[in-house]
Amino acid sequence: MRSARRSPFAKAGERVITGWIYLCGFLSIILVVLIFLFVFKEALPLLREYPFASFFLGTKWIPEPARGDPRFGLVPLLASSLLVTLGAIVIAVPLGLATAVYMSEIAPVKVREYLKPAVELLAAVPSVVLGFFGVAVLASLLQDTLHLPTGKTMLAGSVTLAFMAVPTIATISEDAINAVPRDVREGSYGLGATHWETIWRVLLPAAFSGIVAAVMLGVGRAIGETMVVLMVTGNGVSRALSDTMAGDFHRVFATYLGLCRTITATIAAEMGEVVQGGEHYRALFMLGVVLFLITFLINLVADFALRRAQRT
């Protein structure tokens, strides 16, 4: 009997290790729940002092007014966050995917050998450095080429965030494409498909779940980013954005050429100066709750997409 040969110590050791792994798993879940509860608990009292609707529908964020009551309107911040991220996705996903396809399918071996580590290195560049780049180079460039009054714009934010996301999207997508078994490629070629048809109709669909992951991680890095956005977007509300909030929706494209003020940047800029337990403090935590819900929602959607991908 095999089990008889194993020493009781080995058995106990196995049990300890299994237990430890379970514990780690549970701990991380509990940690997330606890953190969420903490944030939620800090945020909730806001709704006692400040009406729910004014927070979720308010179009002005004036936390420390010189006169009168503060206003904690979520709309400009939420709109800024969503638009900046959307812009970043629109730029980063095609770029990242194209890079991935180039690296895995098109580049000659020699080029690939140097390109892949280079892109991976880019993914490791600290975001603040990219922020400096965004302010010093990108903002000026946008200002000059588009003749803007200021280069600190939502577009600059989107582009900088896209820069941060592209390497992640590219390397992970490349791994996913490479992981498509050779058999499957050969199946496609064997039916008379060209290189492009194989990439487009087989490799990308087959790598879909990996690509979704790549996009999620890349964009996730961008969404959570605070200081970079703060630096390149000017942290104000442009007139185009005000107009859009007032219902003039076709102005939404113009918002990319103006300032914006994202949820994360607002938290980063203001958290240091709030009195613990004050209304402003609670409002910032409420922003945290909103962010949490947004990422949660994105996760759900991605999860749904993955499940669908799994089924077909």
Binding site: V32, I35, F36, V39, S209, V212, A213, M216, L217, G220, I223, G224, T226, I263, T264, I267, A268, A269, E270, M271, G272, L284, F285, L287, G288, L291, F292, I294, T295, F296, I298, N299, A302, D303, L306, R307, Q310
Partner: peptide
């Protein structure tokens, strides 16, 4: 996909980190 789920789950933490760093 299981690995992905775990990754996505971790992503939930990002905004919280933003709050903490602030």
């Amino acid at each position: 996909i299981t690995r992905l789920r775990a990754g996505l789950f971790a992503l939930c933490l990002l905004p919280i980190l933003a709050l903490m760093t602030g």
